[in-house]
């Protein structure tokens, strides 16, 4: 099967200027050589700590940013450097749900107009009845009662707003949705309900998701495959079960050991506690970017950057321990 989204060696750098009189230019390597494939109907979970480039990866794939290198293939088409007018045709097949549902809805528009907007942009209806049908269908799919169409964002709770954002994302029947931490600003009970809705939608319309999160248990629930990101690079990439049962990269191991387990017998399980902070993306350490915090770091890690190694079939690790 052909992947729906294929990313090869994607790079996105931001130039930051500092100083008032003497301008210092710094290049922040937010995404530095990321590769993965997402197959139709599956969910790729992208995990990592804040500032590691997860969201930038998602936004660059959707071409909200111009990439600085690499290739993005969407449905077999190279969209890496496509112009905005070339992209317009493809944009109806992709959408996004943001983390913050308070900023992602225009406060001056009714829910109906918010959800109808993508349809109006792409003129995906011929009569008003068709437009109305599509909007109400999307609201129903997102789990909102029809009378919500006439409300304004300020009348809705966080979970309801996120459902409006989901309705807006699915109204054009897209093939691919980037879910950029869609539940991390919601409380736990609402989180579970929204996640179930997203899973149902995937099953119903066979939508492909890129699920960005820092919450490992949520990623485990949602994803088929998982990529772990650290400082702009993917350090481990495997099927969900392989990654969660046999984590290989020291960073993944540390992350997994930090997940609380609801089992008192496992209270004294081995914990890997990382010291230090994630590196400054404008000034990453030489060699393996994780070596300053890695308990297993050797001289080689300090000098040479490890390549992506396929340790087991479809289980990739960027670590010298497996070379």
């Amino acid at each position: 099967m052909e992947p729906l989204v294929k990313v090869e060696n994607l790079r996105k750098y931001f130039v930051v200027t500092k100083g008032v009189i003497i301008k210092k230019r710094k290049v922040v390597r937010a995404v530095d050589g990321v590769s993965f494939e997402i197959y139709p109907g599956e969910t790729l979970g992208l995990v990592g700590e804040s500032g590691c480039g997860k969201s930038t990866t998602g936004l660059t794939i959707l071409r909200a940013y111009k990439p600085d290198g690499g290739r993005i293939l969407f449905d077999g088409k190279d969209i890496t450097y496509a112009t905005e007018s070339e992209l317009r045709e493809i944009r109806k097949y992709m959408s996004i749900v943001f983390q913050n549902p308070y900023s992602s809805l225009n406060p001056r528009m009714s829910v109906f107009d918010i959800v109808a907007e993508p349809l109006r942009i792409h003129k995906l209806y011929s009569t008003k009845d068709e437009l109305v049908d599509a909007v109400f269908k999307a609201l129903e799919d997102a789990g909102l009662p029809p009378e919500f169409a006439y409300r304004y964002p300020h009348e809705l709770s966080g979970g309801q707003r996120q459902r409006v954002a989901i309705a807006r994302a699915i109204v054009t029947k897209p093939k691919f949705i980037v879910l950029d931490e869609p539940t991390s600003s919601l409380d736990v009970s609402v989180q579970a309900a929204v996640l179930n809705t997203l899973k149902d939608l995937q099953r119903k319309y066979s939508i492909t998701y890129l699920f960005i999160s820092h919450d490992l248990s949520v990623v485990r629930f949602m994803s088929h495959r998982v990529a772990v990101m650290y400082a702009g690079k993917i350090v481990e990439y495997a099927n969900k079960s392989d990654l969660f049962e046999k984590p290989m990269h020291p960073y993944t191991k540390a992350l997994l050991s930090a997940v609380p387990v609801a089992d008192p017998k496992k209270r004294f399980r081995e914990r890997i506690i990382l010291s230090g902070d994630p590196p400054d993306p404008a000034n990453p350490p030489p060699g393996c970017r994780f070596h300053p915090r890695c308990p297993f770091a050797s001289d080689r890690c300090r000098k040479e950057e490890p390549p992506m190694i396929e340790v087991e079939p479809r289980h990739f690790v960027r670590c010298w321990l497996y070379a």
């Binding site: 959707l62 317009r88 944009r91 992709m94 943001f98 992602s104 225009n106 807006r168």
Partner: peptide
């Protein structure tokens, strides 16, 4: 910098529409 402007861009809205519909009223 509000997310709904970014969302509109990802949806494929033209700059003029974004300016008049999303930015100007706010």
């Amino acid at each position: 910098n509000e997310l709904f402007v970014l969302a509109a861009r990802i949806m494929g809205a033209r700059s003029i529409v974004i300016m008049l519909k999303h930015i100007l009223p706010n």
